[in-house]
């Protein structure tokens, strides 16, 4: 079985359920973890990175993800995206409701919400994730407040929470992300859009059990991202770990 651990979805044609399912079928991916999409138009991604464009919206379309899961229960699992700029009691209430609604994890968006991973709101989300058994997934950025290092700090503080560093960390090869996954029990790596060498090194150092496959659909593609895993010179059992076992363990936790 292959599970895509990270696929964005929105009503737009290039990133809707139909397009995603077609891509999943091409890649022989049976299920996908949906992340709310559309806050950034990935077709203009660099403009957001450079600050030329502001996010289309800061309100995470979690309801749309929930709708897609209900309409396609055999295909999709959902992560909700939390906005840490809201008041902490509002965040807590929303996250608890999302868990009841069936979301299985949290996805943080530093580029959209421009927050500090080590701020109070982020920490309250990390804490609650641990209580609810939901992984805390985040991208990391260049600067200190949303760095890979900050994820490490969070992971040490919230030992009962599983943290996922998206896209294997920041930049072309984030050795710190690999190091964190190899030394901290509760840090994992998601592989989408990462360089092949980064994935290869992570398997060697952190192990397949700390990694799971993702596509970063629609920015990338399930077939393209699968190729990186297929190219690894590792036993099939480890590939299976990356393809499904790690994410299933995280979602069951």
């Amino acid at each position: 079985m292959i599970i895509d651990g990270h696929a964005h979805i929105s009503p737009e044609a290039h990133s809707n359920a139909e397009t995603l399912i077609a891509a999943m079928n091409d890649a022989e991916v049976s299920r996908a973890v949906l992340i709310p999409g559309g806050m950034l138009d990935v077709r203009q991604m660099t403009d957001y990175v450079t600050g030329k464009k502001k996010p289309e919206t800061v309100e995470p379309p979690n309801d749309f993800v929930l709708q897609m899961i209900k309409e396609n229960p055999d295909y999709f699992i959902g992560f909700c995206c939390m906005n840490p700029n809201e008041k902490i009691d509002v965040i807590t209430e929303k996250l608890e409701q999302h868990a009841k609604d069936g979301f299985k994890g949290v996805k943080m968006a530093p580029m959209v919400h421009q927050f500090s991973l080590l701020g109070k709101a982020s920490k309250s989300i990390a804490d609650l994730c641990g209580q609810l058994g939901m992984p805390y997934y985040t991208h990391t950025l260049f600067h200190a407040s949303a760095s890979t290092s900050s994820v490490g700090t969070l992971a040490k503080e919230f030992k009962n929470t599983n943290f996922v560093i998206g896209h294997m960390g920041f930049g072309p090869l984030d050795v710190e992300a690999i190091e964190l996954a190899s030394t901290l029990d509760n840090v994992y790596l998601e592989t989408s859009t990462a360089n092949f060498l980064s994935i290869k090194m992570a398997v060697e150092k952190a192990g397949a059990e700390k990694m799971f496959y993702g596509s970063e659909f629609p920015m990338s593609d399930p077939v393209v991202e699968r190729t990186k895993i297929e190219r690894l010179n590792i036993p099939d059992g480890q590939k299976e770990q990356i393809y499904s076992k790690t994410i299933l363990e995280l979602l069951k936790a």
Partner: peptide
Amino acid sequence: RSHMYRTAGIS
């Protein structure tokens, strides 16, 4: 706010 986050990484 956006500028300070992008350039200094500060929230």
